[in-house]
Structures are given as C-alpha cells and as structure tokens.
Amino acid sequence: MEKLYKLSGFAKLKKLSKTLKRTVVLEGWTNRTGRQALREITEAYRSMLQEMLDYAVENGASQSTLHRVFYHRFREQYPWLPTRVIKSCYRDAVRRAKSFRELKRKGLARTDKPVVRNVTITYSDLQDWRLENGVIKVRTHRGWVEIHYRGHKQLHRYLYNGWKLSSELRLKISGGGVIVYLTFTKDFEVVYDSRNVVAVDVNENNVTLALFKDESLHEVYRIDTGLGRIVIAYAERRRRITKGRSTKIRSVKKVLKKLRERERKQDVIYKTSKIIEEIAEKNNAVVVVGNVHKGKRRLVNNVKKNTLRHRIHKGLGSLAL
C-alpha cells in the first residue's frame, strides 16, 4: 500500500474540474403508427450500418471517409430518413469496426466479418426530438411520434437537480415497446489537498483503503465485500439449475432469469464506492485506484483451474470502481 502511495506522486493541484455523465434507461411505449415508423427507421439503419461497417473494416475508414462514400447514395435511397440518423450511423460503424479489429487481433472474433445484430438508433440533435410534458417526441417520416413512459425517480432527480440533458437520444425497439436512453451531464469542481490520498487496493472478497494525510499514513480501512463468495454461490446455483442441460432450454432460461447476481454485486459496488467517496470528501483527498482490469487479466492468465478463473473474472471484474 505504501508503494502505491509513493508511485502516485503529489502534484500541487488544488482544484479538479470534471464533467460527469449519467444515462437513464426508460421503458416506453407508443401507438401502432409510431411502432411502424420506428421499425422502418431501424431496418433502414441496420442495412446502412452493415454496409458501412464492412467498408470500415476492410478499408480502415474514418467518419469523414464514410460520409464521402455513402452519404449521397443513402440520401437518395432513403429520402424520408432524418439526415442526422444517417450521420450517427458513421460513428456507430467506426466504433464497431474498431472493436471488431481488436477482437480479431486477439483471436476472439467468432466470424470473419462483423455482423450487425442489435441496433440502437441515435438522434444527435434536439431539432429531431424533445422531452416535454412527460412524453418523448421523436421526428420520423410519419410525423412526430410520441413515446410515453412510466414515472421514473432517477429521471426526475436529474431533471430537477442541476443536471443538463444531452442533445443525444438513443432508442431501440424491444418487443412491443421502446427502450429509450437519455444522457445527462453535470460539471463539478472538486477542491482537494494534494498531500491527502486515499489509496484503494481491490481484492476478491475485500477492499483495503489507506488514508494518507500530509503525506503520512494516517489510517487503514478494510471493507468486506464478499464478492468472491457471491460468485461461488451463484455458480453453484446455476450448476444445480442446469444439471448439464443447455441454457437455451426455455424452462432453464426462465429460472436463470430470476437469479439476481448482477443486482447483488452492483449493490455491493455502489455501497463500497459511497464509503470511499465519503472518506475522500471528509479529508479533501484524492483517490488512487490500481488498474483492476489489468490485474484481473494477469491473474487469469496465470491460473489454470477453471473455477478460480471464473471467480477472478466475475469478482474482480465487477469491482472496476
């Protein structure tokens, strides 16, 4: 822990400006005309994205290149499609192409060419959508589509507590409904004493905190997370549920959906993060955390036992604080 502190350094910074970004997920619904309009946009988007993605992978194309090659043709092919939807497809194709090349380089790609399965449409300008009177309105070739949603406490908290609604709206068709992603941003200025540090060491079942004040070790905390034990318990429950059967069987899939491993781990992570935040805020300290993903990869590569590899992957992988 002392070594981690010495490597962190002590720059004489007193203020840190940071923009936080949060995404709110809403489950919405619209009428038959609205669903049909969104499905038509989704299918057109999927077709464009697949063609752009293939080109980007083969030629290493940038967004500007994709615009030059595809924009006019797609405007003629889909004259009813909002222009900004076509432009958002460039970013999506470049991002997916980069991800596919990295997977292929690591030998993890399952196909020779990238395949578009899930599509999320992006509206990048408030001219094409708006949030008003508890309804999200989206401009389509069939007119403005109204997407209704249920009351959402998190949405209300961000709307009325100084957070700024981003101009980007993302949505996708899910069964008979619509999943909507709203993004909020907020600028913060944090004042801290650069001589005070909270060093965080993440382990399988606990997180150790070392508080340094005035460049000297002041106090050590240990938080028992039990994530490793949670992973083991749920792995055993999944083993008993499947009993050697495929997880694609309907009855097995139905029971597995009722497991709440992710929710339990998220709850532990949020509570641990809150404790670290309170200690840092109380002492005007900066937080130093090791690279959890890098450490996880190193441990996984050195472990031959499958059960232990699973615990490391699911346990430490969840604690990317």
Rank of each mutant, 00 (worst) to 15 (best):
D112C: 02
L81F: 10
S64F: 08
A285I: 08
D112R: 05
D193E: 11
Y5I: 03
I275T: 03
G295F: 04
K21E: 15
E40P: 00
K12A: 05
N206S: 13
V220E: 15
L209R: 05
F74I: 02
S17Q: 09
D267A: 12
T30M: 09
V300H: 07
V231P: 00
G315H: 03
D128I: 03
I121Q: 00
N306A: 14
D193H: 10
A56H: 01
D224P: 02
R264C: 02
V220N: 10
K254T: 10
Y45F: 11
L227M: 14
G228I: 06
V289L: 12
R101Y: 03
H156S: 07
M52W: 05
K305S: 13
R262W: 06
D128V: 04
V190F: 15
K12G: 03
V288M: 04
R298E: 14
A233P: 00
R238D: 12
G175N: 08
G176A: 08
D128H: 14
E219L: 06
V198L: 14
N196L: 02
P82G: 07
T122F: 05
I249Q: 13
T23W: 01
E132K: 09
K294D: 11
G162K: 07
V180G: 02
A44N: 11
K137E: 10
L211D: 05
R309P: 10
R157A: 12
N59E: 11
T122W: 02
V292K: 05
R110A: 13
G175H: 07
D214N: 15
Q77S: 12
G162M: 08
V178L: 09
R84E: 10
V116D: 06
R110H: 11
R117D: 12
V200R: 01
R130I: 00
A233Q: 11
R101K: 13
K18D: 14
L227Y: 02
E27S: 12
K314R: 12
E215P: 01
S166Y: 04
T23R: 13
D187H: 08
S246Y: 14
S62P: 03
S166D: 12
H156P: 00
L171Q: 01
S8Q: 08
V119A: 00
N161P: 02
G134S: 09
L227R: 04
L16H: 13
I86L: 15
E261V: 02
E132H: 06
E58Y: 00
V135D: 05
G107M: 08
F10A: 04
R297K: 14
R262Y: 10
T83G: 03
S62T: 15
I269L: 15
E277I: 04
L126Q: 08
V119E: 00
F188Y: 11
A233H: 10
E189R: 07
F184I: 08
L169G: 07
K98I: 03
R75I: 12
V197S: 04
G226R: 09
S318P: 00
N283E: 15
Y181L: 15
V24A: 09
R84I: 03
D267P: 00
L308I: 14
H141G: 10
H293V: 13
V231E: 05
L259N: 07
K257H: 09
D267L: 08
L155G: 02
A320P: 00
F188G: 01
G28K: 04
Y78C: 04
E76Q: 12
R239T: 10
V190S: 02
H156C: 01
R245Y: 06
D187N: 12
T307I: 06
S167H: 13
V220A: 12
K18E: 15
K6D: 08
M48S: 06
